[in-house]
Design a protein around this nucleic acid. Structure first.
Lengths: 227, 227
DNA sequence: CCTGTTTGTCAACACTTGTACACTGAAATT
DNA sequence: AATTTCAGTGTACAAGTGTTGACAAACAGG
């Protein structure tokens, strides 16, 4: 139980980076190598359903049959990608919660931060946005679930932070947040399609979505629940 | 020049449906057979980029090499599908323009009509919605263009019909219509994912999007152009 | 130290894929 | 009536696909 107590004969596994690693760690490492390979291939303008098992393992620097050590088939890998992407989405909300809302212009500040976050995780967002309405039913369902969760969390946050200075039924709040989330996912799709770094077009895009969000929240402040 | 004046020896072409048809007509007929085959395959939960040339011709009841008589490659077929879908979208607007807006509850009536229209053309909408943010860059660009056109037409219609009882700059109007169109495309994706005919869930979906649109137009009536 | 477990490799399989080329037969043109 | 055009067929091939089974090496735990 002394965890490689002898330290004799450094294996290839240990030699890599000089860090000792257990078998499980190593397995998870190549697992994420596969996931990253799939994301990278998709980032070159392909849809997930068009990816082949061999293609992915090749990109990952593995032999095709190694794939089965990690996933039963491509669909299972896809679901893993959805889970990863869901984590990224939730982390976004969590960070926003921690940092608090930008002081001066709440909406513009939030959109700016959001777009930067999307850029930073463009592979995950590319996958989520691209497959949300496009790919296989199983993956689409899984993404829809993640997006619903995020929407609910956002609704809770808005309620707790009293971000709208008024009371709205939770169902109305969810309806509003659903609109916000859809709009922001559209925004993600748009920046990721922007060729290279075009600060001009990027600015226009920012303003566009700032205005759309303003409109939504303006509607929210005026909303009357029908009795 | 007398266009098959002799009427002798009825060919296979003429025998079909008893209608005399020219060569060009016949070509276009199998062309749409190919397009329909692609749409049908996609309706079974696949993305366009995952379709193969052979697969499509097989579904169309043709031999693979016939494909080249109509399209250079699958990408060209995809662009043809976008064009077809764009026509369907514009026809929707044109019909709405002709019939006029529903009298009593404008928004609910419009959404109801829209959803029925989506159901009626589910193959086209499935393609447009699914590939809008998902597929190959070329197709995505083409769809984006069509959607922009539709958005602009809608903005013009609203302006001419004085549907909002106030004046808004065209850029603001386009921003609003962009939000409306995106929302309705999301709605299309949602009904098409609805399993079979679930009138209950369908009703919920209708109400959901009616509320979202109400919110948007409520915001629109309150919007103040910043000077 | 020794033994079972497990990640990754290699070779091979039965298919499917996109594309090239020669060909057929009927419509179009002369 | 004779000739040209061309949508659709048939055959063939190199390259790529998912999956199987046996195997190597290194870790894990007794």
């Amino acid at each position: 139980m002394a965890e490689t107590g002898k330290r004799g004969s450094p294996t290839a596994a240990q030699a890599n980076e000089g860090t000792l690693i257990t078998r499980g760690e190593r397995k998870q490492r190549t697992r994420t190598t596969l996931l990253d390979a799939a994301l990278k291939l998709m980032s070159e303008g392909r849809s997930f359903t068009s990816l082949g098992l061999r293609e992915v393992t090749r990109e990952a620097g593995l032999v095709p049959t190694s794939f089965y050590r990690h996933f039963r088939d491509m669909d299972e890998l896809g679901l893993a990608l959805v889970e990863e992407g869901g984590l990224t989405l939730r982390r976004l909300l969590r960070d926003a919660r921690k940092v608090g809302v930008p002081a001066e212009d709440i909406i513009r500040g939030s959109v700016r931060i959001y777009l930067a976050y999307v850029r930073e995780h463009h592979l995950q967002f590319g996958f989520i946005v691209g497959e949300r309405l496009g790919g296989s039913p199983a993956i689409r369902r899984a993404i829809r679930l993640e997006v619903t969760h995020v929407t609910n969390e956002m609704a809770q946050d808005i309620q707790h932070l009293r971000l709208l200075n008024r009371e709205l039924s939770t169902s109305t709040l969810q309806m509003i947040c659903g609109l916000v989330v859809s709009t922001m996912l559209n925004a993600a799709g748009d920046i990721l399609d922007l060729p290279a770094q075009q600060p001009k077009q990027e600015q226009e895009l920012l303003e566009h979505y700032v205005r759309q969000l303003r409109l939504i929240f303006l509607g929210a402040t005026q909303w009357r629940e029908k009795t």
